[in-house]
Amino acid sequence: MGFISAVAAVVLLAVLGQTAVVTENGLPIQWDKAPIELSQLPTVDGVIQVNPWDYLQRMALYKLLINSTDPYMSSMGPGEKESPLWSLPLQLGWKLRSGRLTDPSPGSSSTCGLESSEPVCISPQSWYACMNYYMSVLPFLAAVQTGVVGKGEIQLHVQAPAEGAQDYCSSFTDCSTKYPDAMTKWETFFQSLQQISNSDDTDFNKKDKILGLLWAAEEASLQTASLACSERQKLYSSPEVRFGQGWLNSAAYVAAAHFHANIEKSEKYMAPLPSRVLQETDSPPNIPDLSAEENHALHIFGWMNRVNQVLGGSLVNLWRRAMCSPQAREKGQGLLHDLILDPKFPGTSLMAILTEMTTSC
């Protein structure tokens, strides 16, 4: 496979797939079962007790975030499914459906993390659950602190798991002390939402600013999580570890282009992700019980990781330099769309386009 063709395939490869199921009736998995009001979460002595190891409670954090920020998201487009926060609960649903919220420890007999468990719990030993913690609890605490959720009138405590509690945090103050960069960026995002939304700027510029702040916060959370959760990743097979790293690294491309991750785009993006945890004997692109789309995605993620190691990350750096203005980022999103959705698009022209975009910055 040629270098440029592989780049074209990995950058939002998942846009084309039709394999993984990440929605139910057009919404994240078990969305309708998750609490919709803060008052529906457990309370002790006036303090809301959030258990992020209960799947529905973690999903509730996303529901509260999306419902509370929707009034400031009109620049994203009409309708209730345009918020760029939708990608987060969709990812959590995919992790549940694919078995990635279970304990990966060898010989584990725990049913925690299985969709069939009652209630549906999340294993603290899961690398994917750990990564998602920093993409759910941290933004929620920042939203409460800034008054976006709860109007600044609530007290909140986040329950720690029985094992590995040191890798997590229990309150805004605790999280800010442990992970100041990520929490600061989430605070900035929520504090800026109303100001940007109410400004006299164009919807085009509002959207770009909001997405820029959101992706800065998401990348900070991912970087923080990558360090905090690293020991858990060692529990997986080498094929699953390679996939996980590829999945994690792909965020750099979509972040730099300020990708608008609404429900429709996010669902397409995640569709070719593997529908089960990979085993040591799995060798993409020749895994018999996975679809052609899943095999291809795994093959490209693995190939791309190797190329990035050889090039020292120069491809990501070139892409980031090219995404230097709102207009360039809009062109970048269009470029991602054409690379994936138009089979006649000349993939060999990608590097030339990126170079031209960089020189015009």
Results as ranks from 00 to 15, higher is better:
12 L>E: 13
56 L>C: 03
345 F>Q: 03
116 S>H: 11
119 P>W: 12
140 F>Q: 00
152 G>I: 06
84 P>H: 11
264 E>A: 08
86 W>P: 02
156 L>M: 05
118 E>D: 11
10 V>C: 13
54 D>I: 01
148 V>W: 03
286 N>T: 12
12 L>H: 10
241 V>Q: 14
157 H>T: 07
6 A>L: 13
106 P>F: 15
46 G>C: 08
85 L>C: 05
148 V>M: 05
90 L>T: 03
181 D>Y: 09
116 S>K: 13
81 K>Y: 05
226 S>I: 09
103 D>S: 11
230 S>M: 12
17 G>N: 02
350 L>K: 00
268 K>G: 10
38 L>H: 00
359 T>F: 15
238 S>V: 07
87 S>V: 14
340 I>Y: 08
255 A>T: 09
134 Y>N: 03
179 Y>N: 11
248 L>E: 01
339 L>Q: 00
222 L>N: 10
70 D>R: 13
108 S>K: 00
100 R>T: 08
36 I>H: 14
346 P>F: 09
84 P>F: 14
100 R>M: 03
160 A>E: 10
215 W>I: 00
170 S>W: 07
324 C>Q: 06
204 F>I: 04
196 I>T: 04
329 R>G: 00
171 S>I: 14
140 F>I: 00
349 S>V: 14
40 Q>M: 06
80 E>G: 13
312 G>Q: 06
175 C>R: 04
221 S>R: 02
121 C>Y: 10
345 F>V: 07
348 T>A: 15
199 S>V: 03
12 L>F: 07
303 W>H: 13
